[in-house]
């Protein structure tokens, strides 16, 4: 991945959500941690243009998130904190096919890609299940399948193990480890990011640490006072 933040800041009204920031991300596995309200989700949402910079710019693989916003959405898939919100269709198979609609693909091609996405996460058996009947872990895996089916190069996962039990957490963490796409993982689950190539720590809208996981986690404990 090649994500560049150039003097990028975000304000929501009077509140500064992210202080001016300049950095480049080009590792395959990146983690983001920080206390609640520290600016980490705002930072992640800048990457696929869900949040626009108030000043400065963000480019993703050479595409500007403001000028080329539609193309950036194709480049960077986003998996939301509550994956139920991103499952649009009532049945799993229909939901995974949803992102492929309006692309001029034949029905056979849509079916082929949908099946491939299901089998990639080992959830073929969920194809006919209703999305509101899925468990937390199943919902997260379906949400991931529904995003990767559109072939994004970068995946941004916002607290993917939030509210999962130990078994489902392990399953989802394994699926994230196996993703061939470049990933940016925002999490409070430190075990999930202890092996990433680069870990960013946000605090009060600023980048408080940028480097190896051990250093970032140590600094995080200092900030959290525990």
């Amino acid at each position: 991945m090649d994500i560049r933040f150039t003097d990028c800041a975000v304000r929501f009204g009077e509140r500064v959500a992210l202080q001016p920031l300049t950095l480049t991300l080009n590792e395959k596995r990146i983690g983001i941690i920080g206390l609640n309200g520290s600016g980490k989700t705002t930072f992640a949402r800048l990457i696929n243009g869900l949040v626009k910079p108030s000043t400065g710019s963000v480019t993703v693989n050479g595409l500007d998130t403001v000028k080329d916003d539609r193309a950036v959405l194709s480049e960077a898939g986003f998996i939301f904190q509550n994956p139920q919100h991103q499952l649009i269709m009532p049945v799993v198979a229909e939901d995974i096919a949803f992102g492929l609609k309006n692309r001029g693909l034949s029905r056979d091609e849509i079916d082929r890609r949908m099946q491939a996405a299901l089998s990639r996460f080992g959830i073929e058996h969920l194809a006919r299940r209703r999305v509101h009947e899925l468990s937390g872990g199943e919902t997260q895996l379906v949400a991931m399948a529904s995003v990767v089916v559109t072939d994004p190069k970068i995946l941004i996962l916002d607290e993917p193990t939030n509210q999962l039990d130990l078994k489902n957490r392990r399953r989802v963490a394994g699926a994230i480890d196996d993703l061939p796409e470049d990933t940016v993982v925002i999490t409070h689950d430190l075990a999930l990011v202890e092996n990433v190539e680069r870990l960013l720590l946000f605090h009060e809208g600023r980048l408080a640490f940028d480097g190896n996981p051990q250093g970032a986690i140590h600094r995080y404990h200092e900030i959290a006072g525990c």
Partner: peptide, 8 residues
């Protein structure tokens, strides 16, 4: 936002 990110 999810509808947009999923490219519909």
């Amino acid at each position: 936002a999810a509808i947009d990110t999923r490219g519909f």
